[in-house]
Amino acid sequence: MTEHYVFHSMGIPIHITIVGLPKKEAGEAVKKAEIVFNEYDLRFSRFEPDSELMALNMSNGAWHKVGVELFQVIKKCVALSAETDGAFDPSVGGILASYGYGLPENFISPANSPTYRDLAFNERELLIRLAPGQILEPACIIKGMAIDSAGKALEKVPGFMINVGGDILTKGDYDGGSAWNIAVQAPNNPDAIVSAVGLKNAGIATSGVYQTKGEQDGKKWHHLVNMKNKCPANGVVSATVIAETCERADTEASLAILLGPIQATARLEQSGLPYFLIDEEGNVHKNSAFAKLEVPIQSLVS
């Protein structure tokens, strides 16, 4: 018994496949997952005027009280920023906003862009202080967290796949004990895939700069900006990472783009996570852990 559901949340369609439950129960389970996504969207969206993140972004240099989840998210972002020496920086929100990608109302652009080092935390009171005009965008963590959390809501479902704009969490078996076959999108052709893996109980995320649709006043941009030089990152055009959670997979995939091929490969090798990178020349960089999960595409296409 396989049921498919598609709904819309967090700005994207979400596709959930449920295996091994009667239709009614499957529907109820998906409803729970949908509530989780909607809640994440309402709380952590940089675009949502009433979101907790929006309130923080509008705090304009004053100490601001946040919930424990947002506090932890921002702390995680800062830890990642430190690890990557600022290549990843949640302050990217300000740069994205300047491209016209979700600017809060009455926003005054600061003279020099603040970084994660300008953030101050009060652990006891759960207070965060941003630099004036600093806009945080922790989306790369939030999306994965939301998927994992929705997965948690589907705990009692024997087998499921949650696909949120290409970030996928799988649990259990797909059909009669087989793995979930997940393909990797080709960066240069929306009608093509470049690889496929068989997954059970794992998250997979692909980050890419090939969807560079954005153009503001003739300037091309994409959402992955290396905050060290404030430029959209280059070198890796597509990064796929598999991990136990979508949060980890998504974070590592995004970082791979930001860090560029050499640093990304080093970081991923150290993590031991299965990865599949495509560089600007179209070369594939993958490890044996990924190769082990790979399924020949031909065998999947009748």
Partner: peptide
Amino acid sequence: YAEPFLVEQALRAGSANIQGVSGATYTS
């Protein structure tokens, strides 16, 4: 969707044994 050399029509018809495609967010 798969590489063009892989019978695209069959894929579109959903006969491929692929449950999901991981890629950068298009639909947003």
